[in-house]
């Protein structure tokens, strides 16, 4: 039987995979893919606690706001990524370091 812990564990796995992606990727887009996983894990956690907790729709509303923020974040970050690509001809984070002294 599936319990709350199983859901939480899956959410933790998604979260850690996301963190690992963010930390290890050199490509800006790769890093952004990781942040999407992290945000998804957060939304999932909220919904899990809402379902096993007091059964109100507040959890759904919080999850919706997480999705809205993720959409806004993705749009801006990708625009930044494209601008970066047009200026440096690469989106490798280890090579785009003009500000680094």
């Amino acid at each position: 039987m599936i319990q709350m812990q199983h859901f939480l564990m899956m959410s933790a796995v998604i979260f850690v995979l996301g963190i690992y992606t963010v930390v290890t990727r050199k490509n800006v887009l790769g890093i952004l893919l990781g942040t999407e996983l992290v945000l998804n894990a957060a939304a999932l956690n909220i919904v899990i606690f809402g379902f096993y907790g007091n059964q109100t729709i507040e959890s759904s509303i919080y999850a919706l706001f997480v999705i809205v923020l993720a959409a806004a974040e993705a749009a801006v970050a990708l625009a930044v990524g494209l601008t970066l690509y047009q200026n440096f001809k690469t989106i490798d984070t280890t090579e785009t370091r003009e500000l680094k002294g």
């Binding site: 999407e36 809402g50 759904s60 999850a63 999705i67 959409a71 993705a74 749009a75």
Partner: peptide
Amino acid sequence: ADFVAVIQLLVYIGGIMVLY
């Protein structure tokens, strides 16, 4: 959370994923 699930599909796959 049926509504959140559908919105997740709609926004993430229809919007964010295609953007990526």
